[in-house]
């Protein structure tokens, strides 16, 4: 396994060809040629447009109870059917999708940023800083989540509500809680990559050329350790959407009348044999969101990988 890596693409100090393109532009060119990634991006744009503009076009109230139409399958008046109170599922899906997607992305970003930061600092600095940060990681890994969640609601909910209003307050709380419970694997992954990469020749070369630690990390090590981070990011979006439903079940998340995708799936689970459509649509919505994000992630990692010839 010796001599395993070429110089990192961004650090090819030696080759100053006249017609060189910037690494970003090069990555974008590669990304565009990645068909699945483009397809993924397209799906995501459609989903985002649907949840942003959809409620304007499909103006059925999300909480209009109609017992005469409960648990109905697909029809013209209810394209995705209704739930057990006769509420229109399409309207609920469109409305809830905004929250689910926003929570998914925001929580993923927190997890990735915090995780990468902790992992990178721990990985590059040795000794006590590494030990302290890994202690923190271990601590977060071993905390029992439920009592801690209850403690957090109890400590912060009313303060946040008073500060930024109920909706934003709950959003911040949910995103922070999910993000805070998902950064640890990312940190451990990044640190492991760092431990290995910092001993590689190209980093040594950069060090020998007098690159500062920051430069070594930002230009050389980090770009090469992004593989697992991208995977973690794409998985975390799904995990956050699902986790949100668990939180609202614990009373920490959005009020129970806010139909996020995870919540819809949760409510539908006992009616799976009576009204399968109820679970089918939120389930597939989560699936397609996850699918598109993963394709984009794959495209990203291929585009950022200099050795991949496209």
């Amino acid at each position: 396994m010796a001599g395993s890596t070429l110089a990192s693409p961004t650090g090819s100090i030696g080759s100053r060809a006249a017609n060189r393109v910037s690494p970003g532009a090069e990555a974008w060119r590669r990304f565009r040629r990645h068909r699945l990634a483009l397809a993924g991006a397209l799906i995501l744009v459609v989903i985002v447009l649907a949840v942003v503009l959809g409620p304007l076009l499909w103006a059925v109230p999300i909480n209009e109870i109609d017992f005469s139409a409960k648990l109905q399958g697909m029809s013209w008046s209810h394209p995705l059917g209704t739930d057990d109170l006769g509420q229109d599922l399409l309207a609920r899906m469109l409305y809830g999708g905004r929250i689910s997607l926003a929570v998914g992305f925001a929580a993923m970003l927190i997890a990735i940023v915090v995780g990468t930061l902790v992992g990178a600092i721990a990985g590059i600095s040795r000794g006590s800083i590494d030990a302290a940060l890994m202690w923190l990681t271990d601590l977060f890994l071993s905390l029992p989540q439920l009592p801690l969640l209850l403690l957090i609601i109890y400590l912060f909910r009313d303060t946040l509500k008073a500060l930024v209003g109920p909706e934003v307050g709950v959003f911040i709380l949910v995103v922070a809680v999910i993000g805070c419970f998902r950064w640890m694997p990312v940190a451990r992954l990044v640190r492991a990559q760092f431990l290995s990469l910092r001993e590689k020749e190209f980093v040594e070369a950069a060090r020998a050329l007098g690159a500062t630690t920051t430069r070594q990390v930002v230009r050389h090590i980090l770009p090469n350790s992004l593989g697992p981070v991208i995977v973690a990011g794409t998985i975390d979006v799904a995990a956050a959407i699902i986790a949100e439903s668990t939180l609202s079940f614990l009373g920490l998340g959005f009020p129970p009348d806010v139909p996020t995708w995870g919540r819809l799936l949760y409510d539908a689970k006992d009616y799976l044999d009576i009204a399968p459509h109820w679970a089918l649509f939120p389930g597939s919505a989560i699936f397609f969101a996850v699918l598109s994000i993963n394709f984009i992630g794959d495209g990203l990692r291929d585009a950022l990988d200099p050795r991949k010839v496209m």
Partner: peptide
């Protein structure tokens, strides 16, 4: 308290 029938009752009263 959190309990599916109670949340549905709340929804009916709210409407």
């Amino acid at each position: 308290s959190i309990n599916a029938p109670r949340q549905k009752t709340q929804a009916i009263i709210k409407q």
